[in-house]
């Protein structure tokens, strides 16, 4: 039985990478059909990182990010945390409301809803892929949005899942839209207990 993220072995990390690949592929297709642009994603990175590194792999701790958090329940618990930089938020919002040049800290309710909904749909697509693959039942709670310092936002998964070990498992992906690379990361953060469920279902010990 897996107890800490740092105890994951190479094979298990490879499996998670493949899951991240399939999940984020699905999520990107969903995003592409919503905003009508071609989207490429890079091969996701799967890393167990010390808390501070987990933050810094996404930017400086005081960088301002938009964050959409979707809580996972059912056979797998954990969360998806989608981080968007300003430029990526503009691309999404321009698809909804026309030309966009927002300040993440002063978004109006419509803009927050639109970003939350994108996060929700992408998370659903991501999770559906995993659920189908593993034949597990995974439910998503409604998305929550905030814009704040990267470190403060990431303290949420870190405190919720960092109790036992000193590292966090992040399945990260970077998005490319129309040749421009965006630092929009979707972090899948399953609980340690859920990983055991997932591995046993997939026949990986």
């Amino acid at each position: 039985m897996l107890k800490r993220y740092e105890d994951l072995n190479e094979i298990q990390l490879d499996v998670l990478k493949e899951i991240g690949n399939i999940g984020s592929g699905n999520a990107s297709t969903a995003l592409s059909s919503m905003i009508g642009k071609e989207i490429l994603i890079k091969m996701p990175e799967v890393k167990t990182l010390a808390f501070q590194e987990a933050i810094e792999s996404n930017g400086a701790p005081d960088d301002i990010v938009g964050a959409i958090l979707v809580n996972l329940k059912g056979d797998i618990s954990g969360m998806i945390l989608m981080l968007t930089e300003k430029n990526f938020a503009d691309v999404i919002l321009s698809a909804f409301f026309g030309e966009s040049d927002v300040d993440l800290l002063t978004l109006n309710d419509n803009q927050k809803s639109a970003l939350s909904e994108i996060g929700n749909i992408m998370s659903s697509a991501y999770i559906n892929a995993i659920a189908t693959l593993s034949n597990l039942s995974i439910a998503l709670e409604p998305p929550m949005f905030t814009a704040d310092m990267l470190g403060a936002v990431m303290s949420v998964p870190i405190t919720l899942f960092g109790e036992v070990g000193d590292k966090l498992l992040c399945i990260n992906k970077t998005i490319q839209i129309d040749d421009h690379e965006y630092k929009s990361n979707m972090l899948l953060i399953p609980t340690v207990e859920s990983l055991s469920v997932l591995f046993s279902r997939l026949g990986v010990s």
Binding site: F51, Q52, I55, A60, P61, D62, D148, M149, L150, G151, A152, V153, M154, S155, V156, I158, T159, D166
Partner: peptide, 21 residues
Amino acid sequence: GISDWKIGVAGDVLVTYALGS
């Protein structure tokens, strides 16, 4: 950083970024 503490004296600056919860 997160899960850390340090001591400082006059002249030093102790900084911790982006406290959330």
